[in-house]
């Protein structure tokens, strides 16, 4: 479903991503792990077509995100970091806008909005302005826009960041229910999340993939058998650089 080929991104002389390649198949949930500033968000932004790569590309269902961005983007659902949503719109108004841009019209458009509202349990706030919503609801509104068109590839940048334990549980449940017919990538620095939802994980450090495998395989890489020890041994000692802008 997704094939990433030698993605590279330079910001001036700083190499944020240094040639990353991987594939994600339907039914897989790939966890993207790494310290802050490792290049997780940059990689996701290139895969989803927000940032043009310095070199390399990503194929989504065979469509090149650099050469033919529109058909590629049509297959992607993306939940950016911090779940941005237009604050002055109502939940239903916002989802209706996204459905329109995704090319739905008439009854199908209304049906898509309804099912996204239902799937993300937004019925209670349907006609409320986004700016009046709590963080957990905002996150779900943005999640709803990402799954509205039933995308084959779902990319989520820290989907549970800043949520309370109940909300985290809800988001993970939603991810798992959709997993079978989609390819999913989630970035996180919550290690328990990888064990809870991912079928495969990749640890990124300083713009490179430093480890890859199922959560079980990764854990076996350290005598303690704990994922946080593996993570620390692979990524520690590197100065924290932030590329968040």
């Amino acid at each position: 479903m997704l094939e990433v080929r030698q993605l590279r991104k330079n910001y001036g002389s700083f190499e944020a991503v240094k040639g990353i390649s991987f594939t994600v198949k339907q039914g897989e949930i790939l966890g993207f792990l790494g310290p802050n500033g490792a290049g997780k968000s940059t990689t996701m932004r290139m895969v989803t077509g927000f940032l043009p790569p310095t070199s390399g590309t990503a194929l989504i269902g065979g469509h090149d995100i650099v050469e033919t961005p529109i058909p590629a983007k049509a297959l992607i659902g993306y939940l950016p970091e911090n779940a941005p949503v237009y604050p002055e719109m109502t939940v239903a108004g916002f989802l209706d806008f996204v459905a329109g841009v995704r090319g739905y019209c008439g009854a199908e458009r209304a049906r898509r909005v309804d099912s996204a509202v239902e799937c993300c349990r937004l019925g209670a706030v349907r006609h409320q302005m986004v700016e009046t919503l709590s963080k957990g609801y905002k996150q779900r509104v943005c999640f709803a826009q990402a799954v509205l068109h039933d995308p084959s590839l779902l990319v989520m940048d820290e989907p549970t960041d800043g949520l309370d334990p109940n909300q985290k549980h809800l988001v993970r449940d939603m991810i798992k229910t959709m997993a079978a017919e989609k390819a999913i990538i989630i970035s996180t620095h919550i290690l328990e999340e990888v064990e809870a939802v991912c079928t495969r994980a990749m640890i990124i450090n300083e713009g490179r993939i430093v480890a890859e495998g199922t959560p079980v395989e990764l854990k076996a890489r350290h005598p303690s058998g704990r994922l946080d020890e593996v993570f620390r041994s692979l990524t520690q000692g590197t100065a924290e650089k932030t590329t968040k802008r």
Partner: peptide, 14 residues
Amino acid sequence: RTGTLELLMTLPVT
């Protein structure tokens, strides 16, 4: 400022 640019530019919109 609100980050919706990232949302808008990853929708199938030129």
